[in-house]
Computed example of a mutant assay.
Amino acid sequence: MNDAAPPRRIWLCADDYGISPGVNHAIRDLIGRGRLNATSVMVVGPTIGRDEASALQTLAADSPRCAIGLHVTLTAPFRPLTMHYQPLDGGMFPSFPKLLRAGLLRRLDPEIIHAELRVQLATFGELFGRAPDFVDGHQHAQLFPQIRDAFLMAVKEAAPNAWVRQGGRRQPLARRLHSPKALVLDTLSAQFRRRASRADIAFNPGFAGAYDFSRQADFGALMRQFLDGLPEHGVIMCHPGLVDEVLVSLDPLTDQREREYAFLGGEHFLPLLAANKVTLG
């Protein structure tokens, strides 16, 4: 690597703002300390309202180039904002596996999906007084068949200047085979990128952050892998947070959030960025 080359600027994006008080607190703390430069907001979450939105917006305004996006949500245990949404499972969105299967079998109604996405985009606008800087998806639902076209259409209509998140990373096949989750994201993202390009919608050139949440992984070691080869303006997805009762009731990703929060707020993170010639500023 050329030591004289300027540092690569990447997006380090904390997902799920709005899912719980502990997650909201952790994300705002890291933004305020310059340890994050993007977060995506779950407008169907139980702890997003005008106060939480205002606190985030005020903090982001004081942080150089901090982006706030919409975290489109279409999976359980969350509920749709539109009436007559289908399919439902006990009044909630379907689970991640059911939604992906329905999309692959082309059993979804893109018009119903599109209507829900337009309402989520409008809700973001009501909370923040503007369109999102970018739009991504909870559990990568924006990449699923049938959903991706409705997603891109809604973004084009309601947030034409926003960029969207794809989950692919250009790596040798042998390396990708070691991470089945990343390989699935690569496959789904290839179609997503082609459709986004045809719609003239910008997207991130690279992505990292997927790992096996069921294991107690060393997040510092993972971050070194995520940074390796990530291009300028690439996105690293992360999920920092503090565990509280609301989070436990909604999401299995708990202790891992605290490990991510501890590393991103700790003494080793900024030197790791510097060693890899990466900046968030």
Rank of each mutant, 00 (worst) to 15 (best):
D3L: 13
I10Q: 13
W11C: 10
L12G: 00
A14K: 02
I19C: 15
I19A: 09
P21I: 02
V23D: 07
V23C: 14
N24H: 07
A26E: 03
G34F: 06
L36N: 06
A38Q: 00
V41H: 08
V41C: 12
V43W: 04
T47R: 15
D51P: 02
S54V: 01
A55I: 01
L56G: 05
A60Q: 05
A61Y: 04
S63C: 13
R65Q: 15
R65M: 14
A67N: 02
I68D: 13
G69L: 08
L70K: 01
T73H: 06
L74P: 02
A76H: 11
D89V: 05
P94F: 04
F96C: 00
L99P: 02
L100Q: 03
L104R: 11
L108F: 07
D109P: 04
P110Q: 10
I113H: 08
E116I: 01
L117Y: 03
V119H: 06
Q120P: 09
L121E: 08
L121C: 09
A122K: 10
A122H: 14
T123H: 15
T123N: 10
T123Y: 09
F124A: 02
F128L: 08
R130C: 06
A131N: 00
F134Q: 07
F134A: 00
F134E: 12
D136I: 09
D136Q: 07
H140M: 13
A141H: 07
P145Y: 10
Q146E: 15
R148D: 13
F151G: 05
K156Q: 15
E157K: 11
A158F: 09
A159Q: 04
A159S: 10
A159L: 00
P160G: 10
V164G: 07
V164T: 13
R169W: 14
R170D: 15
L173G: 04
L177I: 12
S179G: 12
K181S: 14
V184K: 05
L185W: 02
D186E: 15
D186V: 12
T187Q: 13
L188F: 09
L188A: 00
Q191C: 03
F192N: 04
R195N: 09
I201H: 01
I201G: 09
A202D: 11
G206Y: 01
G209F: 10
A210W: 05
Y211I: 11
L227I: 04
E232W: 01
V235W: 11
I236T: 11
H239S: 11
L242C: 10
D244A: 06
L250Q: 14
D255Q: 13
Q256D: 11
Y261L: 14
A262R: 13
F263E: 06
F263I: 05
P271L: 08
A275C: 07
K277E: 14
V278P: 05
T279Y: 04
G281I: 01
G281T: 14
